[in-house]
Amino acid sequence: MAYIELKNNTKIYQSGDTQIYANKDITFSVAKGELVIILGSSGAGKSTLLNILGGMEPNTSGDVIVAGKNIAGYNAKELTTYRRNDIGFVFQFYNLIPNLTAKENVELAAQIVPDAMDADEALKYVDLGDRENNFPAQLSGGEQQRVAIARAIAKKPELLLCDEPTGALDYQTGKRILKILQNMSRENGSTVLIVTHNAAIAPIADKVIRIHDGGIQDIHINKKPADISTIEW
């Protein structure tokens, strides 16, 4: 049984008398523990799709089934519980709280769930055990993104959703971030979805979903996903 199933997912925004289709009749499935890349140009509907999967905004029609439950039918309170307990988010621009240390940023997220990972352990996982007392302004962009990943994984989420996680980073730092995310899938069994416009990283995924103009253009299965260390762009 698939861990994620989208069936005819559609999202329409209303602008006056005009209907704008951000997602159009999207159907796909994801197995538990898979690393999936959602690929497409800016404005294709990738981030909208991720927001719907993460319970941050409702769809207009269709089913969004995660772990056997159709979150498309959830009310606001149920979506809050779903986001808190089941989802880890990693964004392009980190979203760290500037007046909290790296450790405190991770602890803040860990406090909202039962049985969270220790903040020190989460920071060590992303090789930042020695920077736990630094504030975001004292960290490089790559280090801030690793704190953001530590914050996400400290919740021990079933599903890790990453929106352009390397978009603001240089090449080498981006590869380091992707290695952490790949390990989350391979070693920890997390289901990881990465939204990106960078087609060069597609070979690292178990599944690549190409989005164009709000709909699915193509779904490709990588039978032997590549290690990020072998990818150049």
Rank of each mutant, 00 (worst) to 15 (best):
I112N: 10
E5I: 11
L123M: 14
I216Y: 00
A116E: 08
P58Q: 06
E143Y: 04
N222V: 04
S185H: 05
K179Q: 02
I194K: 09
I12L: 02
F89P: 04
N9E: 03
D170F: 08
D17A: 13
G142T: 15
P157T: 04
N23P: 07
A205H: 12
E187H: 11
N8Q: 12
T191S: 11
L123R: 12
N99S: 15
L49S: 01
L139C: 06
T18V: 15
Q145D: 08
E232R: 15
L50Y: 12
R151S: 13
L49V: 06
L169Y: 07
N105R: 09
K223Q: 15
I38P: 08
I177N: 11
A109G: 14
E5S: 12
D86W: 07
G33H: 05
V106S: 07
K24E: 12
I153M: 02
D120Q: 13
L39C: 06
S42L: 01
H212G: 06
E107W: 01
A202Q: 03
V90P: 13
V126R: 03
L100E: 01
H220N: 08
G62T: 00
P58G: 03
K46A: 04
Q172E: 14
S190D: 11
K103S: 09
G129K: 07
G214T: 13
N198H: 12
L160R: 08
N85Y: 01
Y74P: 07
R146M: 07
R176V: 11
Y94P: 03
I97D: 05
H220W: 12
Q172F: 11
V66M: 01
G129Y: 09
D120A: 10
G142V: 14
Y74N: 03
A150G: 05
M117F: 01
E34G: 10
V208S: 08
G142R: 14
L96V: 05
G54D: 08
T60D: 00
D115K: 15
G167H: 03
K24L: 08
Q182R: 01
L6T: 11
S61D: 14
Q14Y: 01
Y82F: 13
G55Q: 05
S190T: 12
V106R: 03
V126H: 00
I209T: 05
I211N: 03
L123I: 06
I38V: 15
P157L: 02
T27H: 00
P136F: 04
A67I: 08
S41Q: 10
E104W: 01
I4W: 05
E34C: 09
C162E: 08
L79A: 02
T27G: 11
K7I: 12
G16T: 04
I177D: 00
D118I: 12
D227P: 10
